[in-house]
């Protein structure tokens, strides 16, 4: 009976929740600016529609461009199999936290190559920024994982993000949580690092990398990005309240809450200048490092 509920619940989480979060973010932003906004299921609808479309490929591009979205989505999907949602993750072993970070890096690497394959200077620019900013964000993530690994005595996401015997100090949670939030916003190209709604190619980061993708390729990319946002959101919620997150309803509600929170951040501030972004990310590294120091004491 339990598996009967478990499997549809996991499928719901992996298939419906990521686009739903995006829809909620858009709805929140529309609400704040006094518009009605698209329905919350619009992102899901977009993906389904894109899957059923043909494709346009750039004349410059070759097989890397066609392979990029496929490998990047499968890397994110494998990363998803390591994240504990409300129960245990599908796969869990000691050291999978490092694998999680590197699977996301693999997805990024092939997306960057696909962007460079079009020979467009816009996409080269976006690729360069994405590569640079995530190389600053990764150390912060490692430091947060390190402080959790010290406490749980294990390097697997499942043990690190579950309620253990040892109590993680509240100050440390606060610092690591704010660090993780910055990393979450950076890795998923949200304001204040990147504005997904911008209409000028020169100022985009992630969006400009995927300008030339279309049809199913674009659907894979959109879904991969949304899934990544949800996975990091789950980790964030589990970091703040590991004991409650085991409840699927609580997790769903708090993910929706996180989406609204991100929407509120995006409505309340503008994007940072590109030169300022590394400073924000270094701040995240420092927050994570202080969290680590407090966790060890």
């Amino acid at each position: 009976m339990e598996t009967l509920i478990f499997i549809p619940a996991v499928l719901f989480f992996l298939l419906i929740m990521p686009p739903l979060m995006l829809g909620l973010i858009a709805k929140t932003k529309a609400f704040v600016s006094g518009r009605r906004g698209p329905p919350v299921f619009q992102p899901l609808h977009d993906i389904l529609k894109l899957l059923g479309k043909g494709a346009v490929y750039s004349e410059t591009s070759g097989w890397i461009f066609r392979l990029g979205p496929v490998i990047s989505l499968s890397a994110v999907l494998m990363a998803a199999s390591l994240v504990p949602l409300f129960g245990a993750p599908l796969i869990s072993f000691n050291g999978d936290a490092i694998l999680f970070i590197y699977l996301l890096a693999l997805g990024r690497f092939v997306t960057i190559l696909a962007a460079l394959d079009t020979g467009s200077s816009f996409e080269g620019m976006g690729a360069s920024r994405e590569a640079a900013f995530s190389s600053y964000a990764e150390p912060a993530l490692i430091l947060i994982f390190a402080s959790l690994a010290i406490h749980s005595g294990s390097l697997s996401l499942n043990r690190m993000f579950s309620s253990g015997q040892r109590v993680f100090p509240a100050a440390s949670v606060l610092l690591a949580g704010s660090g993780l939030l910055i990393v979450l916003l950076a890795e998923n190209s949200r304001i204040p690092i990147d504005d997904p709604n911008t209409h000028l190619e020169l100022t985009m980061i992630h969006e400009v990398m995927v300008l030339d993708h279309s049809g199913p390729d674009f659907a894979f990319i959109l879904y991969g990005a949304q899934l990544k946002l949800m996975l990091m959101g789950v980790l964030w919620i589990r970091l703040l309240s590991p004991s409650w997150a085991a409840n699927p309803f609580f997790l769903t509600l708090s993910l929706c809450g996180l989406a609204i929170f991100i929407g509120a951040i995006e409505s309340s501030m503008a994007r940072l200048r590109l030169i300022r972004v590394p400073q924000l990310l270094i701040a995240a590294v420092c927050l994570a490092a202080f969290g680590l120091i407090l966790a060890v004491r």
Binding site: Y102, L113, L116, A132, P139
Partner: peptide
Amino acid sequence: FSLAAAVLSLIGGLAVITFSKFYGLVFLGK
């Protein structure tokens, strides 16, 4: 040791930049 791991991941990030540049500029595009 945690800082060492963080430095290692920074090195990994820079390696991604270096080799996406190498492969992207030499083999991809026009």
